[in-house]
């Protein structure tokens, strides 16, 4: 069995007196794709930020390939963990190519500039996300969906092993949602990585994720395989709204009543 990429031991997470998870034990192994589901304000984004080492946990330890994440340098973490933020602002003018190429930063020595290889990787990532020809465009001139794909391209260029995606399908049309997730999943599997996905669309999550972590917003959490977790009663309790499964032959689709 391959050693896990991420291990959480008794992690407690909260903001301003609110508890998002208590005593969370969780391990993420190569090849897995996890869906993190929960109501608004349940701490899904906070959890992703903690997994990327961007915020401390209140108790417990997060280990990245066996090493406590807070003892690693930012650069070392960034080589292994990449995150697609829920929202991203661009206060200063920059071109798409510059922004995407910045994903190579953790892989380059401090003193060196970008190499021809970085350039090639950035252009390839733009091509893969359907943004070829956008390299000289200004970020502020992009539409919401184009910007989202550019951010995904940055993540491709960073090419981490743990891919943390915070509502990656924001601003994307249906076709792009599925195409982007397929691309990211293929890339993460290609390098023996794992993907952790925060989404609100249960059907999208069910399509891509094989395991789930539910955060109830009260500090309670539970985890398991898709088979175990995608149950009417559990989802109803999670979203505090009655949920039903509809069957179309082999396929299953989740609907709020």
């Amino acid at each position: 069995m391959t050693p896990p990429l991420l291990t959480l031991e008794g992690v407690e997470l909260g903001v301003g007196g609110r508890r998002f998870c208590e005593n969370l034990h969780w391990s993420v192994s190569p090849g897995e794709c996890w869906g993190v589901l929960g109501p608004n304000g349940a701490g899904k984004s906070t959890l992703l930020h903690a997994l990327a080492g961007l915020r401390p946990v209140e108790a417990g330890t997060i280990r990245l390939q066996g090493t406590p994440i807070e003892t690693l340098s930012r650069r070392a973490v960034a080589r292994s963990v990449g995150i697609l933020f829920q929202d991203q602002e661009y206060p200063f003018p920059a071109t798409v190519l510059e922004t995407v190429r910045a994903g190579r930063y953790p892989h380059r020595p401090f003193w060196s500039g970008e190499s021809a290889e970085d350039q090639r990787l950035a252009l390839t990532a733009l091509w893969e996300t359907g943004l070829e020809g956008f390299d000289a465009r200004r970020v502020e001139s992009l539409s919401g969906g184009e910007r989202r794909r550019m951010e995904a391209a940055t993540l491709l260029v960073q090419s981490p092993r743990v891919w943390l995606l915070d509502e990656p399908t924001n601003h994307l049309d249906l076709g792009h949602q599925i195409a982007l997730l397929e691309l990211l999943l293929r890339k993460s599997r290609g390098q023996q990585g794992a993907m952790i996905l925060v989404v609100h669309d249960i059907n999208l999550a069910a399509r891509f994720c094989d395991r789930f972590l539910f955060l109830f917003g009260s500090g309670e959490s539970c985890q398991g395989t898709g088979e175990e977790m995608l149950q009417e009663a559990l989802l109803t309790r999670l979203f505090r709204h009655p949920m039903r499964a509809a069957h179309f032959g082999e396929a299953r689709c989740w609907m709020p009543l």
Binding site: R74, V81, I83, Q88, A102, G103
Partner: peptide
């Protein structure tokens, strides 16, 4: 310039 979280996530 792209934000502290993004910079940290990329290894700064």
């Amino acid at each position: 310039a792209g934000g502290p979280d993004r910079a940290a996530a990329l290894g700064v």
